[in-house]
């Protein structure tokens, strides 16, 4: 059986919102180390994954490895019934075909329970090589969202150039072109509001062209984290990582656009 109690429903709500438009259904893999998932979009261009470590739940119990097939649209609808500050208890009894979600209000006066039908999904796992990236950019996630949104008005793809100076996002379209350069900075704590600066750690400069449609989908994870890590090497898929507090992360891998 699985029983996992997450103190804040908002975390699960945000995770589901940030993958549901990329992936329609996927297996949630549960083990004694936590709950994870990995799935590609239909066109094989983007891979979404997340991990919530067992210590992020209190308590967490998973007796054996489970693969629970879930339709994101259904899960998203059910999670809309949970308050942001509700506690969520995820419960699965062995050999059942449903997953139970219990929402408890903070004062424990309202307890709602929903069951979601599980699917039998034959998912294809890709093994992602454990690689060192040539360049690691860390920047504000809200700034990343703004840049992707702004450049979408110009073109369908963005070129990300990372150098020691900083990171530059450029787009070109039929009506013109645009670019945003973020210079490398320290983390500036703006009156305690924790404004995240931009940092670039690199072995060599990287330049990659990526589809803005996908990047705009990835920005749905921005509410989970103040910062986003963009890990890049020339000519291979980019990894975007949004940390979920210190209990896990959401990662997106995106295949680049390559010159003919």
């Amino acid at each position: 059986m699985l029983e996992a109690r997450l103190p804040q429903a908002s975390i699960l709500k945000k995770i589901v919102e940030s993958v549901k438009d990329l992936v329609s259904q996927a297996n949630f893999d549960c083990s004694d180390s936590g709950i994870s998932f990995q799935a590609m979009d239909e066109s094989n261009i983007a891979l979404s994954s997340f991990l919530l470590r067992a210590d992020g739940f209190d308590p967490y119990r998973c007796d054996r490895n489970l693969s629970l097939g879930i339709k994101f649209a259904s899960l998203s609808k059910i999670l809309k019934c949970a308050g942001n500050d509700d506690v969520v208890i995820i419960r699965y009894m062995d050999d059942a075909d449903i997953l139970s979600l219990v929402f408890e209000s903070p004062n424990n006066e309202r307890i709602s329970e929903f069951d979601i039908k599980l699917l039998d999904i034959d998912s294809e796992y890709l093994s992602i090589p454990d690689q060192e990236f040539e360049c690691k950019v860390k920047m504000s996630s809200s700034e990343f969202s703004r840049i992707c949104r702004d450049l979408m008005t110009i073109g369908a793809s963005v070129v990300i150039d990372a150098t020691k100076e900083g990171v530059k996002f450029s787009a070109t379209g039929d009506d013109g072109s645009g670019s945003v350069l973020l210079k490398q900075s320290g983390s500036i704590d703006n009156e305690g509001r924790g404004v995240v600066g931009t940092s670039v750690e690199m072995v060599e400069p990287v330049s990659l062209e990526l589809s803005l449609k996908y990047l705009n989908n990835f920005t749905k994870a921005a509410p989970l984290s103040d910062s986003v890590a963009i890990n890049m090497s020339n000519g291979i898929p980019v990894m975007f990582q949004f940390d979920v507090g210190d209990i896990g992360y959401i990662r997106y891998f995106l295949a680049p656009q390559i010159k003919d």
Binding site: I45, A46, S157, P237, A255, Q257, K259
Partner: peptide
Amino acid sequence: MSKQATLSSFFAKP
């Protein structure tokens, strides 16, 4: 012109 690559050309299917 650029062409969109797919992930399966980079990541192996076990």
